[in-house]
Design a binder for these strands. Structure first.
Length: 565
RNA sequence: GGGCCCGUGGCUUAGCCAGGAUAAAGCACCGGCCUUCUAAGCCGGGGAUCGCGGGUUCGAAUCCCGCCGGGUCCGCCA
């Protein structure tokens, strides 16, 4: 509803500026603690028209005419010094609640734009670790935000099955076997680590790995079968981990398909024609506009490279969507620029947009699957759920063990997901396990708790045979904490649209926390069940609306909303 | 060496792109609040020359230049 309010303010302000004959390019509207929306346009005009900002502001306000219809959402506009402050009216507050109750805030497929979001895409050589988790959680939440904002979204996991790493894992599996006891990804990583150790000490095995890669690229049936077993077992494990996190990809795209289909070959030929090419022996390098480092597109032995296969994948994607977004770690930044430039060269119309996030490192140093220096996502989830269980057990001894486990799962995974999206992606994260286990008070559990409280009130009401009624008199909701809460509720769609536009999630995480906070203050201030009948009906509507939006904002972040905790 | 990112109370961050109203939160710390819908809560308090130095501006955490500290990339790896 905030969006509608802002639009009305924009049109009124624009009109007033015309009538007062001021010209400016921007209305300079901003959210403010002093008003529901505020314009500082008077500052800009002051320089040009050589008048004091204060007098310009009051001049503009004199020209603003708030319509007297019952459609308007604006109660008042005042000049506070140089600022022009707008305030919402009762229509706005009531309409906010009505729209939530009617469910008209949902905007499914309203944009008719299809976006492919690629995320996670960890090599199938072992389990996911914290670094992959940041990628997966950002990617998944981004996809959810985009869906909620009205886009059609498809999520991809790009499987690098042709790289050296996987070849090493396959080689290791054939030499050491794969544990049948362990979860697939953990079984594969054992073989992978053992293989790396052996390869480091005895160089003679290197050629065996290379042979394996060449045979796989050529489509050797026997080698393909070997790969199939290893990759599928590993992916099965990875999928299971992702499922625990509430993450599911629509498609797993194997890079090998682009080699086998001849697409990679075609790309290389086209680049040779269109690009600034340099040969070094039989290797082919491509010079790209504005990038110092040239890109190798074909190796001396004629086999393909990751970037070339990725080019084929992106061109293929571009024919299937209107926009594509790749979630990449910071280490892929240069690659992403090369990718983009090469795609332009290939005349691809839909270019990838990149969401780049900074690294996650351990106090002991950077992460390395190869060296076995990582905390697996599974281990982390186990620990965090166990920690959450202690907390639930302490507070809710009355519940069954199964119920407590369920709540611990929701709270633990929620806390993990929230931690990953609450900060800007370009902030480096030093991962500290103890810190993560110490479930932050104002993180996901805080928001989930507010949701559980809302549910608890509604449950108690329905036990007494009272439900949120449509005939409730919403004009009764005018206590400070009630108004503050309704205003927060009105911001939800606006926040989501903004996040979808900026491709940034942390403002949504922040909003979720603020909404929970507003509800907690209301909860303290305003008894719902224990008050007059009219007020009770109205407050139940507010509680119902808050429960829905809390549930919605959590769901946009991929976090479950418990009914009790 | 070059590119990119980060540097805001003891700790973790928001605000920076589109400069303006007392620099905003959380954790930690101190003090209050459970005979009323879950205290994973609420209320109050102390604590920051926004890394440093210049510049632009009526006005700079925000823009520009130069430093300093930290990270990362610069493979015929992915």
């Amino acid at each position: 509803m905030y969006r509608e309010f802002k639009r009305e303010v924009e049109s009124l302000l624009k009109l007033a500026l015309e009538e007062a004959s001021y010209e400016c390019s921007s209305l300079e509207l901003e959210q403010s603690e002093h008003a529901d929306i505020s314009s500082r346009v008077a500052f800009t005009l002051a320089t040009r028209y050589r008048k004091s900002p204060d007098s310009i502001a009051s001049d503009i306000v004199r020209h603003i005419c708030i319509p007297s219809t019952d459609q308007t959402l604006i109660a008042d506009v005042v000049a506070m010094g140089p600022y022009i402050n707008f305030y919402v009216n009762d229509t706005f507050l009531n309409a906010t609640l009505q729209r939530i109750i009617e469910g008209t805030t949902r905007r499914k497929d309203t944009r008719d734009i299809k976006i492919i979001v690629e995320h996670t895409s960890a090599n199938p050589d072992g389990p996911l670790h914290i670094g992959h988790l940041r990628n997966a959680i950002i990617g998944d939440a981004l996809a959810r935000v985009l869906v909620r904002s009205g886009y059609r979204v498809e999520t991809h996991y790009y499987v690098n099955d042709m790289g050296r790493q996987v070849a090493v894992a396959v080689w290791g599996a054939s030499r050491f076997g794969l544990s049948t006891e362990k979860k697939g990804d953990h079984a594969v990583v054992d073989a992978y680590i053992a293989a790396n150790r052996l390869l480091e000490s005895e160089a003679k095995y290197q050629s065996e790995v290379e042979t394996l890669m060449q045979r796989y690229e050529k489509g050797d049936v026997e080698v393909m079968k070997q790969y199939e077993v290893v990759v599928q077992r590993c992916l099965a494990g990875i999928k299971a981990s992702l499922q625990r996190l509430n993450i599911k990809h629509d498609h797993f795209i194997f890079e090998s398909r682009f080699v086998r289909s001849g697409d990679v070959e075609r790309i290389i030929e086209e680049l040779k024609q269109k690009g600034d090419i340099k040969y070094e022996g039989s290797a082919v390098m491509l010079r790209l506009e504005g990038i110092e480092k040239e890109l190798v597109i074909q190796r001396t032995d004629g086999t393909s490279l990751y970037t070339t296969r990725d080019l084929a994948y992106h061109r293929w994607k571009s024919e299937r969507c209107d926009r594509m977004i790749d979630v990449f770690g910071k280490d892929h930044e240069l690659v992403s620029q090369q990718l983009r430039e090469a795609l332009i060269l290939l005349d691809v119309k839909v270019l990838p947009e990149f969401v780049i996030f900074e690294f996650v490192s351990l106090p002991s140093g950077s992460l390395s699957t190869r060296a076995g220096r990582y905390i697996s996502a599974d281990e982390l989830m186990d620990k965090i759920e166990a920690r959450a269980y202690e907390e639930v057990d302490k507070r809710r001894g009355d519940l069954s063990a199964a119920k407590k486990r369920e709540i611990a799962r929701i709270v633990g995974i929620g806390a993990l997901r929230y931690d990953m999206v609450k900060v800007s992606p370009d902030k480096h994260i030093m991962f500290d396990l103890e810190g993560a286990l110490d479930i932050e008070k104002k993180g996901a559990p805080f928001i989930q708790y507010a949701h559980a409280r809302a549910c608890s009130i509604l449950r108690a009401a329905s036990e007494r045979g009272i439900t949120a009624s449509e005939s409730a008199d919403l004009d009764l909701l005018r206590a400070n904490s009630e108004v503050a809460l309704i205003k927060k509720l009105s911001m939800f769609e606006y926040m989501v649209d903004n996040a979808a536009y900026e491709l940034k999630l942390h403002p949504v995480a922040r909003y979720a926390r603020e909404l929970a906070e507003s509800f907690n203050i209301f909860y303290k201030d305003c008894p719902v069940l224990n008050t007059s009948e009219e007020l009770r009906e109205a407050r139940l509507v507010l509680v119902e609306c808050t429960k829905r939006i809390l549930g919605d904002v959590l769901s946009v972040l991929g976090i479950e909303a418990p009914e009790e905790m």
